[in-house]
């Protein structure tokens, strides 16, 4: 049997020889995969937001804890009297908690809940969704504070479409960028392999002459390509890890603030991030294998 040491020493002497090209190839793979990873995480988050907005009612008016039943009834009567309103439903604290537990079954969030932090609310549907801002404004006094007894007003549904179209545009742009970068990465790895093949053309000639199998000739180059892609994948994971901990959390907060979504809607991508990491490493390796594969097809004939 062939000693694996042979392949390793061949690979690493090749990597050293083409140091600059190798670095360029690895960086390109890293950047490409970083964007792929970041985009995956963002899409996942946006999907989460969209889903939770969808499950929200058109307009939810959250009540202060410990509101008197008199004030509660008064607000309810008031809402019912508005002509834009189609229906009003009261959701008690207990019902709300039940619902939240259902929606987040199996999530870590449930462990963090103690007591019942979820407020009671009125869920309001409107005859004409266009009037939503107008209706929502009635829960504010002239200073911009919520009226007595009201804690928060949420109306997310009309953001869903906006969020969708923004995501779609970002998606198209990202996919174009990824495609271009991916092509660049493949070309760069292809090129480092081409250089290694060129540097070792005499050896390859002798190998074939004395009856080395095709795989034996190819494996060091495949390994080199795989290694470059895989390292690129690892670098992208490191980049993503730091961005995830820094940028993404800020971005999520920004979305929460501007879109007035209940913070709990964002479960975050922590649950899938490990799969994203694994995916990126595997993808990097595959890109490397693929690129060296085509270089071998082109430059190493039987």
């Amino acid at each position: 049997m062939v000693r694996p040491g042979y392949f390793f020493s061949e690979t690493f002497s090749s990597l050293r020889r083409n140091f600059f090209m190798t670095c360029a190839a690895i960086s390109t793979v890293a950047i490409t995969l970083f964007i792929v990873g970041l985009f995956t995480v963002i899409v996942y988050d946006v999907m989460g937001i969209v889903n939770s907005i969808k499950s929200q009612v058109e307009l939810a008016v959250y009540l202060e804890d410990g509101i008197s039943s008199g004030l509660k009834d008064y607000i309810e009567q008031e809402i019912k009297s508005w002509e834009e309103v189609e229906s009003v439903k009261y959701v008690s604290k207990e019902q709300a908690l039940e619902k939240f537990k259902e929606q987040n079954e199996g999530s870590d969030i449930l462990k963090e809940i103690d007591g019942n932090p979820i407020p009671a609310s009125f869920e309001i549907t409107l005859k004409d969704p266009e009037k939503i801002d107008q209706v929502a404004l009635r829960f504010y006094d002239k200073d911009g504070n919520y009226i007595n007894g009201v804690n928060d007003v949420i109306y997310g549904k009309n953001y869903v479409n906006k969020l969708f179209s923004i995501t779609a545009i970002i998606g198209v742009i990202t996919i174009i960028i990824i495609a271009v970068l991916l092509l660049a990465a493949i070309v760069l790895i292809f090129n480092t392999i081409r250089l290694s093949i060129y540097a070792r053309r005499k050896e390859i000639e002798v190998m074939k002459l004395v009856g080395a199998t095709n795989w034996f000739v190819r494996i060091p180059f495949l390994f080199e390509g795989f290694f470059e892609g895989f390292i690129g994948g690892i670098v992208s994971i490191i980049l993503l890890y730091f961005t995830g901990n820094f940028l993404l959390i800020r971005a999520e907060r920004l979305i929460v603030d501007t879109m007035r979504i209940k913070e709990m809607a964002i479960v975050g991508s922590s649950g899938i991030i490990i799969y994203v990491y694994i995916g990126l490493a595997v993808l990097g390796g595959l890109i490397g294998l693929f690129s060296s594969g085509i270089a071998l097809r082109k430059y190493v004939k039987v």
Binding site: M1, V2, R3, Y6, E203, V206, M207, V210, G211, A212, F216
Partner: peptide, 10 residues
Amino acid sequence: FALEVIGKPG
């Protein structure tokens, strides 16, 4: 080299 690449033992 001729023997290595056809997998002969050392």
